[in-house]
């Protein structure tokens, strides 16, 4: 299939990109989600703005408290980053398993977040890690908690004209891991769970079990209240109602949530 006619601009600065998006263009980062949708004509933007020419959007660096990941940093770089591995292992886990090597060579962290697919791996791990995104728009820059970014299928709280410029991951000594289940290796994740275990307690989030990534609040509450892992697993699906699909029933996905929460918790604990 073939995309519809569109206008293309390549921004050389964040401001230029913001101006283009404010004028109605759709931001194109790695294109690994957007391009297939455009080819199937499920998306038909009349204009796109390519973010690949903005140097400050690429790269991983740190300050005292946070790791700053440029929105255009590709999954392969994130998976290979010692810094991310050291402070947020679950994010590296997730990045290393997205799509195929070809997809990881182009797909970006900002693109994953902005696309907001409910089966995407990256948002859930960033929520569990307590990360934030920096969004820049016509009215300036603001910080959004990853948890507050995605509202439903392919929908975010980004204002018109805003683009994600950076992801900020707290530097922590948490032990963390991401565990996911998929059918074929290349397939979208059926259910995935990211768990962070630290001095301030346990944080966990899941993908594939709702119209957006969700915090596993009941699971966290049991563990943070001193309860056992078994008790936490028993409550992991509380308040969560996954959608049945070709990849499994509601019951199956709720069950997988427990299996993967246990697996992620176990792997995090052993790190």
């Amino acid at each position: 299939m073939i995309p519809s006619t569109l206008e293309y601009t390549k921004a050389s600065s964040i401001d230029e990109a913001v101006a283009a998006v404010a004028a109605g263009a759709v931001p194109l980062s790695g294109g690994q989600s957007l391009m297939p949708m455009m080819r199937l004509r499920l998306a038909a933007p009349h204009a796109i703005v390519d973010l690949s020419g903005i140097p400050e959007l690429v790269g991983i660096c740190e300050d005292e408290d946070e790791i700053a990941v440029g929105a255009m940093t590709i999954h392969r770089e994130i998976a290979a980053s010692e810094l991310i591995r050291a402070h947020a292992g679950l994010v590296a886990d997730a990045a290393g398993g997205i799509g195929s090597p070809q997809v990881r060579n182009r797909g970006t962290i900002g693109g994953s977040l902005g696309h907001a697919d409910p089966h995407s791996d990256m948002p859930a791990t960033l929520i569990a890690a307590g990360a934030s995104v920096i969004a820049k728009g016509p009215n300036g820059e603001r910080r959004i908690l990853a948890e507050d970014l995605i509202t439903t299928y392919l929908t975010t709280t980004l204002e018109p004209g805003e683009i994600i410029t950076q992801v900020r991951i707290p530097k922590s000594d948490d032990h963390s891991a991401y565990a996911k289940f998929h059918r074929r290796a290349i397939d979208w994740t059926v259910v995935g769970v990211g768990v962070c275990i630290g001095d301030n307690g346990v944080r966990a989030a899941a993908t594939g079990v709702a119209d957006k990534p969700v915090r596993l609040s009941a699971f966290e509450a049991v563990l943070n209240g001193g309860g056992s892992l078994d008790d936490a697993i028993a409550k992991v699906a509380e308040g969560i109602e996954p959608h049945a699909g070709l990849d499994g029933s509601v019951e199956y996905k709720k069950h997988l949530l427990g299996v993967l929460a246990r697996k992620a918790h176990g792997e995090a604990s052993s790190r």
Binding site: R183, R184, A185, I186, D187, L246
Partner: peptide, 16 residues
């Protein structure tokens, strides 16, 4: 038709 593409119709890869 619910399985028209290789996303829904699961042709296995070497990894599978």
């Amino acid at each position: 038709m619910l399985t028209p593409t290789f996303v829904e119709y699961l042709v296995p890869s070497a990894a599978d």
